[in-house]
């Protein structure tokens, strides 16, 4: 297992390298640079700025310098947001994105698998149709539609929740825990909805299949109750497709957060990325892309390791 983990981490290096190369050169292809503006600056000043950020060197040299710096953990200064390094900005945005993203993931996994199991046990019953109908809606309707609709319903027409904004962990003492939690409800739910839908469908399918297998029949013949069968025997086997979906789910949550952070005005990493890409903030965009690619690689690895623990048929090699 340790050897396998090491091997996987080693094989992640070329993947990350591809990410860095592609993102770096694509950004440089974009017309205009971080310091082009409507106001034309004297050539001497432009040359000075370019020299300060190594932009006067050939692109290949710039790339090697950048790669060298990244390997030493230095992601450079942001080109647009003055006096901040990329690391500082990412560390500012990360708690926001992580709070929303992780809560959504946990909510989606638990609620999604609960609903899926419920639908599977009541196959073709009312509960099944209800869950699957809602799941279909959750998959079909994107979160940039559900987010404004839910805001309209819960924050504009009824004054139950705030429309947008981030309270922050540090403001809990000042403003109270309920204000903090209320500000999180809408972003977390809208981000989680499509994943709840997908996971419940996935769980329903695999649960139905597992419940038909022989060892479940044996368990039932032994006289175990439905609930005990699910809990002790079926859940573990049925969770296997769910675990292998967790990698893609994380990727989906990350890209979903781009929209959610914009709608709910949250100062997370996704916003930095979109704004950075538009304003040609090369280093900031690179930093966020590297972070997200690393996250996806690591989470896929974790998913595979958990899979190996759950499923004795899977051999790590």
């Amino acid at each position: 297992m340790l050897l396998y983990t090491l091997k996987r981490l080693l094989s992640a290096i070329p993947t990350l390298l591809v990410v860095i190369v592609v993102a770096f050169f694509m950004m440089r292809l974009a017309p205009g640079g971080p310091f082009t503006s409507d106001r034309s600056l004297p050539p001497a000043i432009e040359a000075n700025i370019a020299a300060r950020y190594n932009l006067d060197q050939p692109v290949a040299m710039q790339f090697l310098t950048y790669l060298g710096n990244v390997l030493q953990g230095d992601f450079g200064p942001s080109y647009k947001i003055r006096d901040f390094t990329v690391t500082e900005l990412v560390l500012q945005g990360l708690p926001v994105s992580a709070t929303i993203g992780l809560s959504s993931l946990i909510l989606a996994v638990f609620l999604g698998s609960f609903l899926g199991v419920l639908a599977a046990l009541r196959q073709n019953g009312a509960a099944d149709y209800a869950v699957m109908g809602v799941a279909l809606a959750g998959i079909t309707i994107p979160n940039f539609v559900t987010a404004p609709l839910l805001t309209l319903l819960f924050a504009v027409w009824n004054d139950w929740l705030p429309t947008s904004g981030w309270v922050g962990w540090s403001a809990i003492e000042q403003q109270g825990l309920d204000v903090f939690l209320k500000s999180l409800v809408l972003p977390i739910i809208t981000l989680a909805l499509p994943q709840i839908a997908i996971i419940s469908r996935l769980m329903r399918g695999s649960m139905i299949e597992v419940m038909r297998s022989n060892y479940i029949r044996t368990a039932r013949a032994k006289g175990l109750s439905s609930w005990q069968i699910v809990q002790r025997h079926a859940l573990r086997a049925a969770a296997i497709p769910l675990v292998s979906y967790l990698g893609p789910a994380t990727a989906a949550l990350l890209s979903g957060s781009l929209v959610i952070e914009k709608i709910f005005n949250l100062p997370g990493i996704g916003r930095y990325f979109v704004e950075g890409a538009i304003s040609r903030d090369y280093t900031l965009v690179m930093g966020v892309v590297i972070l997200y690619a690393t996250l996806i690689v690591v989470l896929n690895l974790i998913a595979d390791l958990v899979l190996a623990v759950l499923d004795p048929k899977v051999k790590l090699s």
């Binding site: 993947t15 990325f273 979109v274």
Partner: peptide, 11 residues
């Protein structure tokens, strides 16, 4: 395994 949305945005 690439965060593809990000590349599309850059594109």
């Amino acid at each position: 395994s690439l965060p593809f949305v990000f590349f599309v945005i850059i594109l």
